[in-house]
Simulated assay, not measured.
Amino acid sequence: MRIDVYVPLVLALLLTAIAPQVGRRVSPALAARVLTAAAVLTAAASTWALLLLGVTLIDQTPAVIAEAGEEGRALPEPVPEAVAVLAVAALAVITHRLLRVVRTHVATRRFLRRLCEGHPPDSELVVAASPTPHAFAIPGKPGRILVTAAMLGALEPAERRVLLAHERAHLAHRHAALSTAVALAAAANPLLVTVRETVAFLLERWADEEAASAVGDRHTTARALARAALVSQRARPGCALYFSEHAVTRRIAALRTAPPPVARSVGAAVLALGALPALGAADATGDLLRLLGERLPWV
């Protein structure tokens, strides 16, 4: 346990290091999926590892100390007490971060759904009379696309088709679920923040590629993206919109080249990397249970 319990924490650094490279070399759809899965596995394993470290404090409870003293048994000390205390503190911080992410996502979802109230339940497109250019994909049953009149007015007809195809891709492929999953992973393990940012970019790239395929023109898709970013920047200096955020320049450059390869072998390697922390945590769990079973008869 002395080594295995730390494996998930170390491998999180490795996943963070390779995530940008995976995002550049693998198709956005595959890269987003495998990085999200690996991040969730790594975050769960690292959180479990912290829990294991905290559990080692059980040998410091008065009842256990008294019983061990009466029977003349040595108490287990798989990790230093200071490390266990820090693990408990980290778990408290993680709980707070997770709750904050959940509250933010729920509040955002409710706000966007309220904007769609009063529209026919079977209508996919909701146009809001707002002077600020916005475009959102709102997941749910049914999923909705909320676009402001300002955004539609700024785009040419072909570019509007790109915008709608982009937002439909978000809905069709459940990008909101992937985004929430990787956000929770990063909240549980701050080392995965880079992975979260990479997945956010990849989800937009994925939707860009779907839009380009739907309209059959990568140049028009790039032009629509550039125009949406431009009108958003003019309307709100220093703040880009959802459709036009996440490194617009890189997304436009990607649309001017051929789509990246699927590279399933790379995807499998990333998933394997995500599984390693789980294996390390499982091994550490077995070691701790055996140790406590030997030293604490009631376990």
Score class of each variant (00 low, 15 high):
A188R: 04
T198N: 05
L191N: 12
F201K: 07
V195S: 01
L171M: 04
L192C: 04
A158H: 09
A183L: 14
T194G: 13
H170R: 05
V195W: 00
A177T: 15
A185H: 01
A188C: 09
A181E: 03
A185W: 01
L178F: 08
V195C: 00
R160Q: 15
A158W: 03
R160D: 07
N189D: 14
A187E: 03
A187S: 09
A165C: 10
E159T: 15
L164M: 14
A165V: 15
L178E: 05
R168T: 13
P190R: 02
R196C: 02
L191V: 15
L191M: 10
A176L: 05
L184M: 08
L191K: 10
V182I: 15
H170D: 08
L163K: 07
L164T: 15
A185Y: 01
T180I: 15
R196Y: 02
A185I: 01
R196G: 01
F201S: 13
V162S: 06
L202V: 08
A186T: 06
A177W: 08
E197G: 14
R161K: 13
L184F: 02
P190W: 03
R174M: 07
V182N: 00
P190F: 04
V162R: 05
H166S: 08
A165F: 05
L171F: 02
L202C: 03
R160E: 14
R168K: 06
R161M: 10
V182F: 03
F201N: 12
H166F: 13
S179D: 12
S179M: 11
A183W: 02
P190G: 07
E167G: 08
A169T: 02
L191R: 12
R168E: 07
A165T: 14
T198E: 12
H166I: 13
L192I: 11
A188N: 04
R174K: 10
A177M: 09
H166D: 10
F201Y: 07
V162K: 06
V182E: 00
L171V: 09
L191A: 15
T180F: 12
A172W: 01
S179G: 15
R161I: 11
E167C: 08
A165M: 07
T198A: 11
